[in-house]
Design a protein around this nucleic acid. Structure first.
Length: 914
DNA sequence: GTAGTCACG
DNA sequence: ACGTACGTGACTACA
């Protein structure tokens, strides 16, 4: 018989999790980081141990932690932060839902409960895994009792295990001697005094020779050094008392029967709902329970698979669309939708297609609308009888009406009904995109799926995509009924969420930003994605081959110089070679080993000739893998790369670019810059590249209202040189190149949310010097200082900061009790309004430029945006006109008290044009 | 799936 | 005493 129980020190693990995972809240603003970390550890344990029993012990009423692992001030006890305190009941609720026994007993500490339970279980033949963040418990370790100490890292959890053997290996003493150790050395966190003057080393030495405090005292004259001998002589009673204090009780009276701890049905519906409320999406996958449903809502869901019914529905919608204020929730399922791994078979069955996705046509549409009688959500599948073409045609007729169409992802819809982006077909319904609205209302989320929107704006818990399709049990066919529900939610949620979202946009002052910037931008981005950018495949391949040759040469030379071959791409192997084999100095550690990043290697340049080779190798390997080889795979049949522009990713309002990322094509180094030669315009066209000059500093000048900064820009002066001149108190003409570049770094630092440490790091100067620079900078531009302080202040008061155009970024970090977190929040508060305003401005320019080019039937097209730069594939005869449009629209995109300088260049490749 | 590294603004 | 510049995405190694 090999029975096993997992015992968990509840508060200790909760505490660890709280400090290990920064800043996690659900959409209601409830802190959930500690609960999340706790559950991660719990699940990891359950997986690893495969135990039959589990029990969690808590202290009852504990204003403070007895064992404060992250105690910052020794000897004092900070009360439990409120953010952690409020999570204690939550974790207990989750445990109860999972049928996991919670053990607590007034007057007894968790340690003592655990000690008693561990020993009792051991005595009855159980194997015990005792989990705690607290090393005091090591005294309980035995061959059958394993003390497990989890380390919560940013991702994942590592657990240190201690049986008797490991304790001896680590400390050189037995578990039983741990109390003697504490008795001698004390423990400030636990208010155990110990023997004054005796620390860990001395204590261990004494115990190695004499085993126990009592025995050591009996042989006190033999103790060396003298200092320790005298200390023990004078404080023997204190040592004994300390030992008692440190001893964990193993004889508490407990009301615990083994069956209480039996693991039974932990992955149940109730627990699933709890975790869902807490929004722990990643933890849900281990549950395999029935998809919960909203019967009262789903009553209005319908499958219109019969041709007659489908036609009737469309007919009815068409009639209703004649009425003012008609509103339609819409979702179109088609080939471009990544999520569609299912399809409709000819017999009307819905099945999963887990094989490689083939080109599928339209699968069906779902619509939500309101009749006089009721609201309806209906899925109309494509079938033999109801052709996709027919459905789309009918839909397009409906969309000609002046109706409000609410969707989750409008850009996706455009892929299926491209006519919506053009005016020709007469289709121009008013669009509401819930995903983009939700992003604007809170840009910090990582998902804006329909279930997130239902939760945040309708207060409704609905089954997610994962609930329907990503469950382990779902392998082949899916119930038709389930699929219809999913499809209907996708139309129902946007239909119903509009009201609340519009209201919130209004209340937060972002209505205008939404309707005049974000919404029109969707079409602009769709246009850009469709157009793509032409790439010279042959030139790119040759570039890759050249890199390959150079890499091979470098590789051989590196192996020769270090005397062995290894994987240079492995930071782990490289670290060993550099810092162990070659014994190079300045070894800096990361969490997992030696750091081999470029700035570390830079400092080693003089130490060994191989360093430069490695740096060069890294550069080339990067260029080859990410850019040469990487980009080739994205070239479509039309010879162009159609990347994606994501509008709902960044916290500041910027756009991001993926598949591939076209916003980080090399430029700073010449070799990398060469790759831009393969980005070329189509025949008869040329590239015009327009970028804003120092837009963020200009935004800072405007928003802060600093006169000196404003005047500098009005007079078109060299801002970095001016800053150098002012900060270093030297005449403008005498500023050296180094001084100018230092001043430039300071300017950048200001935009990033200045910190003296960051600046010192960047300039390789001392923190003190950096401090001096910053102080002088603020003396020069006093309004900038006031402005930045104000941002932090209002950020703290309101909980968010905002751009010139009222785009918000919540900054919950500002109220963190953790210094690091709070400082981070302050930098965010300073940077986001600046970066975000610049993002707003170029978005406005993009929309206007794209619209003007389209409306005036230019052949020239906007194809790329790189934060402060726009690339236009320009028809040769239109060069001058487009140049004019770019300059004007970018210049006038925002009204500011400094000019927005725009630099336009042209060329036959991106290399030439920028 | 995460960590380390590095490409860009 | 804490240990950092702001915002992204892709690739490789490795558990």
């Amino acid at each position: 018989m090999n029975r096993k129980i997992v015992l968990i020190d509840g508060h200790s693990i909760l505490n660890r999790a709280f400090y290990g995972i920064p800043n996690l809240t659900n959409s209601k603003g409830i802190h959930t980081n500690a609960v999340y970390g706790f559950l991660n550890i719990l699940f990891k344990l359950l997986d690893e141990e495969q135990a039959e029993y589990v029990t969690v012990a808590f202290d009852v009423k504990h204003p403070t932690f007895r064992h404060e692992m992250y105690q910052e001030y020794k000897g004092t006890r900070k009360p439990m932060p409120e953010e952690l305190h409020e999570q204690v009941p939550i974790v207990k609720e989750v445990l109860q839902a999972m049928n996991i026994k919670i053990l607590e007993k007034p007057g007894f500490e968790a340690d003592d409960i655990l000690g008693t339970l561990a020993k009792t279980c051991e005595a009855s033949g159980f194997e015990v895994a005792l989990v705690s963040g607290d090393r005091d418990l090591l005294q309980l370790a035995s061959d059958k009792i394993k003390i497990r100490i989890p380390k919560t890292k940013q991702s994942g959890t590592e657990i240190e295990d201690y049986n008797t053997k490991q304790v001896i290996e680590k400390y050189g003493i037995t578990p039983a001697q741990i109390v003697d150790l504490k008795g001698l050395m004390g423990d400030t966190a636990d208010n155990i005094p110990g023997v004054p003057g005796v620390g860990e080393k001395t204590a261990l030495k004494i115990l190695t020779s004499f085993q126990t405090i009592e025995n050591a005292y009996a042989h006190v004259d033999e103790i060396t050094p003298n200092r320790a001998k005298e200390a023990l002589k004078n404080h023997y009673e204190l040592a004994q008392l300390s030992k008692v204090l440190a001893t964990i009780k193993t004889d508490c009276p407990l009301d615990f029967e083994m069956k209480d701890g039996k693991i039974e049905n932990i992955y149940n519906e109730k627990a699933y709902q709890k975790l869902k409320e807490l929004e722990f999406k990643s933890l849900l996958s281990r549950f395999d329970c029935e998809v919960s449903s909203n019967e009262n809502i789903e009553d209005i869901f319908e499958l219109a698979a019969e041709p007659k019914r489908a036609a009737a529905v469309l007919q009815q919608i068409m009639l209703l669309a004649e009425q003012p204020d008609f509103q339609l929730g819409l979702c179109v399922f088609a080939k471009n939708q990544k999520e569609n791994v299912f399809k409709v078979k000819e017999d009307g069955q819905f099945v999963f297609d887990l094989s490689e996705k083939k080109e599928e046509d339209l699968l069906g549409i779902s619509v939500c609308y309101k009749t006089e009688a009721a609201t309806k959500a209906i899925f109309i599948p494509v079938s033999e009888a109801v052709k996709g073409e027919y459905l789309l045609d009918q839909l397009k007729v409906i969309l000609k009406h002046d109706i409000l169409v609410s969707v989750i992802d409008y850009k996706e819809l455009l892929y299926n009904i491209p006519e919506l982006s053009h005016t020709e077909g007469g289709m121009k319904p008013r669009i509401f995109d819930c995903q983009v609205a939700a992003y604007l209302l809170n840009p910090l989320k990582d998902s804006y799926a329909y279930d997130d929107i239902a939760r945040d704006y309708m207060g409704l818990t609905v089954p997610s995509y994962e609930d329907y399709f990503a469950k382990a049990s779902v392998t082949a066919a899916l119930e038709k009924k389930e699929f219809v529900k999913y499809a209907c939610y996708l139309a129902y949620v946007p239909y119903e969420a509009v009201r609340a979202m519009e209201e919130e946009l209004e209340q937060s002052g972002m209505r205008q930003l939404y309707y005049e910037v974000e919404l029109p931008l969707i079409t602009t981005l769709y246009d850009m994605e469709m157009r793509g950018v032409r790439v010279n495949r042959e030139a790119l391949t040759i570039y890759g081959q050249q890199l390959a040759e150079k890499i091979e040469v470098l590789e051989k030379e590196i192996y020769r110089q270090v005397g062995e071959s290894f994987n240079i791409n492995s930071p782990k192997q490289l670290g060993v070679i550099l810092f162990e084999k070659l014994q190079l100095p300045f070894a800096k550690k990361t969490k997992t080993g030696y750091s081999t990043s470029a700035d570390v290697l830079d400092k080693l340049k003089c130490e060994h000739p191989v360093i430069n080779l490695i740096l060069e190798y890294r550069q080339l390997a990067k260029l080859k893998s990410t850019y040469a080889d990487g980009l080739v795979t994205y070239i479509s049949e039309d010879g162009r790369i159609h990347g994606k522009f994501n509008q709902t990713i960044t916290a500041t309002g910027r756009i991001s670019s993926t598949e591939p990322n076209l916003q980080n094509i090399p430029i700073r180094m010449d070799l990398g810059r060469q790759i831009r030669k393969v980005f070329v315009p189509r025949e008869g066209y040329i590239f015009l590249d327009a970028d804003y000059s120092q837009i963020e500093l200009r935004v800072l000048a405007h928003m802060s209202g600093d006169e000196k900064l404003i005047n500098a820009y009005r007079q078109q002066q060299d801002i970095h040189r001016i800053t150098a001149s002012e900060v270093f108190h030297i005449p403008f003409e005498e500023v050296t190149a180094l001084q100018r570049s230092n001043a430039k770094a300071v300017n950048f630092g200001i935009v990033y949310g200045i910190s003296s440490f960051g600046l010192s790091q960047d300039l390789n100067i001392t923190k003190k010097e950096a401090d001096e620079y910053i102080k002088k900078y603020f003396n020069t531009y006093p309004r900038v200082k006031e402005f930045l302080d104000e941002l932090i202040q209002t950020g703290k008061e309101k909980g968010y900061v905002e751009t010139m155009f009222k785009r918000r970024r919540p900054v919950p970090e500002l109220s963190s009790s953790n210094f690091m977190q709070r400082s981070f929040g302050e930098r965010i508060a300073m940077n986001s309004p600046i970066q975000g305003t610049a993002a707003d401005i170029i978005k406005i320019a993009m929309i206007r430029i794209n619209d003007r080019l389209k409306k005036n039937n230019f052949k020239s097209q906007l194809i790329l945006q790189i934060h402060d730069e726009l690339l236009i594939e320009t028809y040769e005869e239109e060069i001058e006109a487009v140049k004019e449009i770019l300059e004007k629209e970018m210049f006038y995109a925002a009204e500011m008290n400094v000019p927005l300088e725009v630099d336009v260049k042209q060329g036959n490749s991106w290399y030439e044009a920028h």
